[in-house]
Simulated assay, not measured.
Amino acid sequence: MQFLAGDIGGTNGHVALMRVADDGRGELETLAYRVFPCAAFPSLAELLRTFIDAELRASVSHCVLACAGQVMGDEVVNDNLAWPVRPDVLRAALGLSEVVLLNDFEALAHAIDGPLSASGRHLCGPSRRGPGASLVVGPGTGLGAAAHVPGAPDAVVLTTEAGQMDFAPHSLREREVLAWLAPGGGYVPVETIVSGPGLLTVYEALCALDGKAPTLTTPKAVTAAAATGGDRHAVEAVELFCAALGSFTGNLAMTYMPTGGIFLAGGFLSSIFDLLKRSAFEERFLHGRSVQTLLAQVPVWVTEHGCHGVQGAARWYVRHHAPMGITSPEGAAA
């Protein structure tokens, strides 16, 4: 039986037609895969319809979608999605009998058992994974994270809304940026700074603090200017972003002690890998004092997001939620 699997973020929607291979091992097969810009579609149903019309030769009735945000009842709660996501609307619009939702970083964490763990570039720490928990962390349109705890017969995945934690400044410059963001005090989530839009916000804040008019208007423009060194505020913004990401990731590591590795996911980080490697990320990740000995045992990689969210959603579905007729990778009915 074939089924649809998707990874729907704030910027792009990754959609695939999947099935479990009839090879005796139950490996997942990707029959078709496309990436769509979410802003080009008036609804998620239209995005999925475009994929279905282009790629399907036979009808499908089951769909699993990993979405940015948390599933609350029959909808996804997240401010970064382009439109509301409701399974009942999708079922009616597309003639599906089942639409199942899960968190996008929950899906990425399930992909750690697949090709995700072998696809990254080493950033810091040991070069090999240990036996403990793993984390997947990703700044994109927002900031997501999930934990993967190995176990038998299946790993346990813990979802989080870590990107909504309060931002804690480390340097005096970060305190100035925080004061610019919230001059009257109050709550500022980490993803306001540690995300793609957050990088642009940091750049604008630094310009304002120095009495300069910003000339760059997109996160991509900021990273490009930082790479060439052509704009000192862009350089500083990327440095502050990378340092803040290090502190945030180190805080999560102190919570889970993920000796199985941390995977920083997303095309955004992959595009600035050299800048990240030269930044204060590792210094801020290690934090200092006695905890540094513990955090030094945690390997960190940067990996492309790519199709891993789709693969993770499909792996979760066939193991835990698939109807009769779709067989799990272990060969048992899911």
Rank of each mutant, 00 (worst) to 15 (best):
S59A: 15
V100L: 10
P299A: 03
D88H: 14
F41A: 02
G132M: 12
L28C: 07
L101Y: 03
G142S: 09
L200M: 02
E55F: 05
A265I: 03
Y187M: 05
P323H: 12
V71H: 05
D274W: 08
Q292H: 07
R289F: 15
N103T: 05
N80C: 12
A182L: 02
L269S: 04
T249P: 08
P329G: 00
T259H: 05
N80R: 13
V177D: 00
A208T: 13
R278E: 15
H287M: 15
G186R: 01
G120P: 01
H305V: 08
P183N: 12
E330V: 12
A179C: 01
A225Y: 06
E282P: 06
S328C: 12
F248S: 11
T223R: 06
L269H: 07
N80A: 14
F263T: 00
L44A: 03
D274I: 12
A322F: 13
G10F: 14
C242R: 05
H308T: 08
V318G: 04
T201F: 12
P87H: 06
V318R: 14
L252E: 07
L81A: 09
L178V: 07
L116M: 00
S127L: 13
T215F: 05
S171K: 01
C307F: 15
V76P: 06
D53Q: 10
M324P: 13
A332L: 15
L108I: 06
D104K: 09
F51C: 01
E98N: 11
C38W: 07
L90I: 12
A162E: 00
S43Q: 01
G246Y: 10
A152I: 05
S117G: 01
A182G: 00
T249M: 08
I326Y: 12
D23A: 05
A244W: 05
P37G: 09
I262N: 10
S134Q: 15
A225K: 00
D113I: 06
I326L: 13
G260C: 03
Q70H: 10
V235L: 02
R91G: 12
V300E: 03
M257K: 03
L48S: 02
A253Y: 04
W83V: 09
V85Q: 07
L48D: 11
L81V: 10
S117D: 01
S127Y: 03
S134M: 14
H14K: 15
E46D: 15
A5L: 01
P153Y: 05
G246K: 02
L56H: 04
G13W: 04
L240Y: 02
F105T: 11
I112G: 03
V77H: 09
H122W: 05
T303Y: 03
A205D: 06
G140N: 02
H62Q: 10
G114C: 04
A92S: 12
A313Q: 00
E239I: 07
W180F: 09
Y33G: 03
D23E: 03
Q2V: 04
G142Q: 06
D88K: 14
F167E: 02
W316N: 01
A253Q: 11
V291L: 15
M165A: 13
P84D: 09
G230P: 00
V298H: 04
R25F: 06
Y187T: 09
V89S: 14
D154T: 11
A213F: 06
L17V: 13
H308K: 01
M72A: 13
A314W: 00
E191L: 05
F273E: 12
A227Y: 07
L108S: 08
G95V: 06
G306H: 10
R175N: 07
G325L: 08
A107R: 00
L47Q: 12
F248R: 04
L135C: 15
G163V: 00
